[in-house]
Design a binder for these strands. Structure first.
Length: 588
RNA sequence: GCGUUUGUAGCUCAGGGGAUAGAGCAACGGUUUCCGGUACCGUGUUGUCGGGGGUUCGAUUCCCUCCAGACGCGCCA
């Protein structure tokens, strides 16, 4: 379906043409003065220069051509040259009816679907997920779902960190603790044990211990670097250990992401890109892009237009082992080969922007991607505590994601049982659903690129711009619809009538914005625009609800119309929260 | 030091070349023939849109500069 603003613009453009003005000035926008009108066109003021005429005169000429259009209830030319528009109620109702009949709720799917890969999540194996991983998962998941809603083929890849120094650190620490294990015996000819020599709990304790030691003990760090290198060279014992680490860790990660309702199509890892590294390095050398510098192999990626010199990309360390950038470039090679995407989007902490600038430039210089392939860095800001500093536990440690989720769910559970007589089993499940909405909405309602304050009390509140408020509104609608059908009503039978009052019209016009909002939010990769939209839509519904007694309405046609409108609002809200990555319960 | 980025109400955040810069929270007051009151309505010189210049008929929005914070600057990821 066409967007309502486009339809209005087309109609206004006809008036511009009839009055003898260039139709390019006819663009209509939503009014910023809702007390005066619903839509406005500022084109008369912009056209002033071309026609050397007072804007108000131009506006009057145009308005004169619009007065008999059935689309409008009211049009006016206002000083200094605004064209103010009110839509006719019948037209709004007609739009609602068409929207209701459209399974995509008026959103037009992409005419040419793209293959888009989203690199998000990015956890390191053998380390527990902490709050730092929250944003990538939540934002990435939402963008993936938006893309799919718009009709694109979107592939989400978790891109595990399984090949860097942290693996060497774990191997080194394991050797310190259990030197007799066969993995460290170079003479051992196998086969290695099938059971991992550690549990996930032990693994999560080993890494921080090793990391701590490496910072104070130079020799220890050397060992870890060497172990990393040996792993990259494929030393059998280390490879066997690496497999154990992966098995144990990935199972745990999957469990945790599932709790967040975050789902990856691919569980690829840095190690998967390793086979592509030799040819990558050779290519970079052959093309004259890579050269040696202080023993390392580097690629100059600076450009003349840079305000500040961009440092070279390090392709290989002086000991020949690969680095972050090497792996990311090799991953691009792999992705192009396996999936040939039109675009790759990286949802990563914004502090890594420079790294991606280097990687993208190198990838383009070397022709690893097609010219038209998009490489997009979507950096997100830090999640801070109420003090404005990075979010920590009460004693100053790193907050594990599991614990954060548990805290929120406990809080939600308390609120739910306090106010409702729901059974405990149901309350637990409901608390999880509402809790997830609190976390995700709290995050996504902020612009991704900015730092934001994670405030548990605010996010879990049922009042204000929060996930629980949105869910409450939806549950309320569902409740009314359920009563209607219980009373023998049929949802599909209603024809939506022209709005009975201004509040109902506001609700309709807000509904009608859905397609434009979704399209724009995806274009800009801005989930927060969906949040602010459903917040406004919820407010409009609650206002309407407050003024209108729906179920007790005696005129059955009117009642059916309202029910149909409610069902439409419900569907729009469902679609939006699904894209945001959470769900509404039946009761709460 | 260089660079990137942010600065909007007491707090948390939207917005964005145009008509009176908006929401929520917090504070105070109101709404009950109630389909879920975890709702709705109202009140405040809520404000030098960080300061100063410039472009423009018009700047909070674009450009420059200064101030403040965050972040990044070759062998970690």
């Amino acid at each position: 379906m066409k967007k309502l603003l486009d339809l209005i613009t087309e109609e206004v453009a006809k008036a511009f043409e009839a009055a003898g003005y260039n139709t390019s000035y006819a663009r209509v926008s939503i009014s910023n003065r809702p007390d005066l009108c619903e839509y406005q066109c500022n084109g008369a003021m912009a056209a002033k220069k071309e026609y050397k005429k007072a804007p108000i005169m131009i506006a009057q000429d145009i308005v004169a051509q619009m007065t008999d259009s059935s689309m409008f209830e009211e049009v006016a030319a206002v000083n200094p040259g605004f064209i103010n528009i009110k839509l006719s109620g019948a037209y709004a109702a007609q739009y609602m009816t068409e929207m209701e009949a459209d399974e995509n709720l008026s959103v037009e799917k992409a005419a040419e679907p793209k293959t888009i890969m989203i690199d998000y999540g990015g956890p390191n194996v053998a380390k527990p997920l902490h709050v730092g991983h929250l944003r990538s998962a939540i934002i990435g998941e939402s963008i993936k779902r938006m893309g799919r809603f718009m009709g694109h083929k979107v592939i989400g890849d978790v891109h595990l960190g399984d090949w860097g120094l942290q693996m060497g650190l774990i191997i080194t620490e394991l050797q310190e603790r259990q030197p007799s294990l066969p993995y460290f015996d170079e003479a051992f000819s196998g086969p290695y044990p099938e059971e991992a020599p550690f549990t996930i709990g032990e693994l999560e304790e080993i890494y921080p211990a090793a990391s701590g030691k490496s910072k104070v003990d130079e020799a220890y760090k050397e060992k870890a670097l060497e172990a990393t290198h040996q792993l990259q060279l494929g030393r059998p014992g280390y490879m066997a250990l690496w497999k154990h680490i992966m098995t144990v860790s990935v199972a745990d990660l999957k469990r945790n992401y599932q709790k967040l309702n975050v789902d990856f199509d691919l569980w690829k890892a840095e190690s998967d890109a390793q086979p592509y590294i030799p040819e990558l390095v050779q290519l970079m050398k052959d093309k004259g892009l890579a050269h040696e510098d202080q023993g390392a192999l580097i690629v100059d990626v600076k450009q003349e237009s840079d305000a500040k010199e961009v440092p070279p990309l390090l392709l290989l360390k002086s000991d020949g082992s690969s680095l972050y950038a090497t792996t990311d470039l090799a991953t691009i090679v792999e992705r192009m080969k396996l999936f040939n995407p039109d675009e790759i989007i990286y949802v990563v902490d914004k502090r890594q922007e420079m790294h991606f600038v280097q990687v993208f430039r190198a990838a383009r210089m070397a022709g690893l991607v097609k010219e038209e392939t998009g490489l997009r860095f979507l950096g997100f800001g830090t999640m801070n505590g109420k003090d404005g500093k990075p979010f920590k536990t009460r004693d100053g440690g790193v907050m594990r994601l599991e614990n954060l989720i548990k805290d929120i769910n406990d809080e939600m559970f308390k609120k739910i049982v306090e106010n409702r007589s729901v059974r405990d089993t149901e309350a637990t499940k409901t608390a999880e659903m509402v809790g997830l909405s609190a976390i995700k909405y709290g995050d996504l309602s902020n612009q991704a690129s900015k730092d934001y304050v994670f405030d548990v009390d605010r996010f879990t509140s049922f009042e204000g711009n929060t996930g629980p408020y949105i869910l409450y509104t939806m549950v309320r609608i569902k409740s009314i619809l359920a009563r209607y059908t219980e009373g023998g009503g049929v949802l599909e039978n209603g024809k939506i009538l022209a709005p009975a009052n201004g509040v109902e019209k506001d609700l309709m016009l807000k509904c009608a914005r859905f397609n434009a909002v979704m399209e724009n939010a995806f274009d800009e990769k801005a989930p927060h625009k969906i949040c602010s939209y459903i917040y406004e839509l919820s407010n409009d519904f609650n206002r309407f609800y407050h003024e209108t007694k729906i179920l007790s309405e005696e005129n059955e046609v009117q009642k059916a119309s309202w029910i149909a409108l409610l069902d439409l609002v419900r569907r729009v809200l469902e679609a939006c929260i699904d894209v945001l990555g959470f769900e509404a319960p039946e009761r709460m």
